[in-house]
Design a protein around this nucleic acid. Structure first.
Lengths: 103, 103
DNA sequence: CATCTATTTTACTATTTTGTAAAATAGTTA
DNA sequence: TAACTATTTTACAAAATAGTAAAATAGATG
């Protein structure tokens, strides 16, 4: 099983998986232009610190963000902005599908 | 919880989730240019028909493929080729991350 | 119509994901 | 150094994912 599946297909799936959660897409967009800590994000989403922290650790393990401390707070930063190309492309796929569906 | 998360962020996550599995990426690429049935794909991957069928139903529910019967066989077809833009973009994100990592 | 074939669905299992609450940790500050 | 604050980690529970095996289904064919 899985033998014919290429390494690249597995790696692509890992990146896609890390981004394929609405909370994580939200977090990525929040930290894009703002300096906002885990604590504030947890309040905004009305979720536990632990949950937000775990979402960031998924993003960190995928290499999409890294952490930076300032005083008591930790501010996650984007490794590269190109992650939003992925979000944008998924929007385009969604639109394309719905266009075809209407035919 | 989840109130600040926009509908678009949720929809994007649904598309990304459907593609975020190596078996499904493999299946999409297999049906891209070949006419290949569930049965043959199951043999290639050494997996049960049921497993392949379920992966296709995930792709179908996301609107990414539709089915077409020819005799006894069912051949899944891509709704739109743009789904590969997503796979390609995830590759670019992966490369971008690793380039930054090396610095 | 009866049967055959391919696919889907169902029942089940194991694993992963996603959340909470609370303990542990790391770093700051009095 | 002691205490405080923010974050992470751990232990746990519920839900979702991904697989198998076998029953059910749909359509093709003798």
């Amino acid at each position: 099983m899985y033998e014919p599946i290429k390494k690249e297909q597995k790696l692509n799936a890992l990146i896609l998986k890390a981004v394929s959660n609405p909370v994580r897409i939200y977090l990525l967009e929040e930290i894009r232009n703002k300096k906002i800590c885990v604590c504030e994000l947890a309040k905004k989403l009305n979720m536990s610190f632990g949950a937000i922290s775990k979402h960031f650790s998924v993003l960190k393990n995928a290499g999409l963000v890294y952490e930076e401390r300032d005083g008591n707070n930790i501010y996650y930063r984007l490794t590269c902005e190109c992650i939003f190309d992925l979000v944008e492309t998924s929007k385009q796929v969604f639109d394309c599908i719905n266009k075809k569906r209407r035919l």
